[in-house]
C-alpha cells in the first residue's frame, strides 16, 4: 500500500527562481525565506519519498484561454519546464509515474470528478520553483512527479470545498494503490498577494495567519469562504490557496505541523513554507 508521508506547502514566486539562478540564498532579502527550507530538507533526507503529487496552477505556459481545464492531471512519462517569457528555463526534467497517474485518474473519475488528462504537458514555475527549493543543485530529482493543475486564472474558479474534495479523492486513490511508494503531497502558491489593479500590492496578514493556524488541525475552517471571498481577502493571486486546500484534503491521516515559515515580503507576496506530517496513528 502506498503511504502519504506528509505535505509541503510553499509559495512559488517566479523571482525565487531568479534568486536561485543568481545564488542569492544568503542575501539578506532572501535568506529569511530560504532558511524556511532547512527543516524541509531535513525531513526529505529522512523520509526519502518516491513520488510527489503536486497541486498547482499554470500561469500560461501549458494552458491558454482557448482550452482552460478546471482540473487537469498529468499522465506523462516526463515533464519539462520551459521559458515562460522571461528567458529562464530550468534544465532538470521531472520523471513521471504513469501507472500511478492513471490509477489516480481512474479513482477520481470513479469519485465523480471530471479532470482533463494530459499525456503531454509542460509544468511552469509553480512546480519547478518548489522542486528547486526542495532539491537544490544539479542532480536529477530523486522522486517522480504527478502534477495536478487547478484553474486559478479564469473565473469561475472551483470552490474551496470542491478543491478540498478533489484532494480527498486523490488521497483515497493514493492510499488504494497497490505499490509501496512513499508519497509527498505539494500545495504551491500563495499566500496573500495581488499583482494587478488599483489594489496591487495587497497583503492580508490576518487572513494568512488564519490559514497557517488552521491548515493542520482544522482545514475545513478554510472552506467557510467562497472563492470570491478569498480573492477579496487574500488578493487575486492569493486565491492560489486553493492549491493548498486541495493538497491538505489529500492528507487523510493524523496531521500535524512539523515546521512553518511566514515571511513578508518576497517580491509582492506574503511568502510561506509549511511542512506537515501525515501519519496513521495519533501521537502520544
Amino acid at each position: 500500500m502506498s503511504k502519504i508521508a506528509g505535505g509541503i506547502f510553499t509559495s512559488h514566486v517566479p523571482g525565487i527562481g531568479g534568486a536561485i539562478a543568481k545564488g542569492l540564498q544568503q542575501d539578506p532579502y532572501w535568506k529569511p525565506f530560504f532558511d524556511g527550507f532547512d527543516p524541509v530538507h531535513q525531513w526529505l533526507a529522512d523520509e526519502k519519498p518516491d513520488v510527489a503529487v503536486v497541486f498547482y496552477n499554470d500561469h500560461g505556459l501549458n494552458f491558454f484561454l482557448d482550452k482552460m481545464p478546471t482540473f487537469a492531471i498529468g499522465a506523462a512519462a516526463e515533464y519539462r519546464h520551459e521559458d515562460e517569457g522571461w528567458g529562464i528555463a530550468f534544465q532538470r526534467p521531472f520523471e513521471g509515474h504513469q501507472d500511478l497517474s492513471w490509477h489516480i485518474i481512474e479513482q477520481v473519475v470513479a469519485s465523480e470528478f471530471d479532470p482533463v488528462t494530459c499525456q503531454s504537458m509542460l509544468v511552469d514555475h509553480a512546480v519547478a520553483v518548489p522542486f528547486e527549493l526542495c532539491w537544490p543543485g544539479k542532480e536529477a530529482f530523486p522522486l517522480k512527479l504527478i502534477p495536478i493543475a487547478i484553474n486559478t486564472v479564469q473565473h469561475p474558479l472551483p470552490s474551496p470545498k470542491r478543491c478540498y474534495n478533489l484532494g480527498q479523492a486523490v488521497g483515497r486513490a493514493i492510499e488504494s494503490w497497490g505499490g509501496d511508494e512513499k508519497v509527498v503531497i505539494f500545495g504551491t502558491g500563495g499566500l496573500s498577494h495581488q499583482l494587478e489593479g488599483g489594489r496591487a500590492g495587497h497583503i492580508n496578514v490576518d487572513y494568512d495567519k488564519f490559514c497557517l493556524r488552521n491548515l493542520a488541525p482544522d482545514p475545513e475552517a478554510l472552506l467557510q469562504h467562497d472563492t470570491l471571498d478569498i480573492v477579496e481577502l487574500a488578493g487575486s493571486q492569493g486565491v492560489e490557496i486553493l492549491n493548498w486546500i486541495a493538497a491538505r484534503g489529500a492528507m487523510r491521516g493524523s496531521v500535524r505541523e512539523l515546521a512553518s515559515n511566514y515571511h513578508i515580503p518576497i517580491s509582492n507576496t506574503a511568502a510561506a513554507t509549511v511542512l506537515l506530517e501525515n501519519s496513521d496513528k495519533v501521537h502520544a
Binding site: W43, G201, V205, E257, A259, I264
Partner: peptide
C-alpha cells in the same frame, strides 16, 4: 510601493522537527 510592501515586514518561524 516597495516601502509599502516592506512595511508589512515580518518573519515568523516554527520548527518542531528537533522535538521529534
Amino acid at each position: 510601493f516597495k516601502a509599502a510592501l516592506l512595511a508589512h515586514g515580518l518573519t515568523e518561524t516554527r520548527n518542531f522537527l528537533t522535538e521529534k
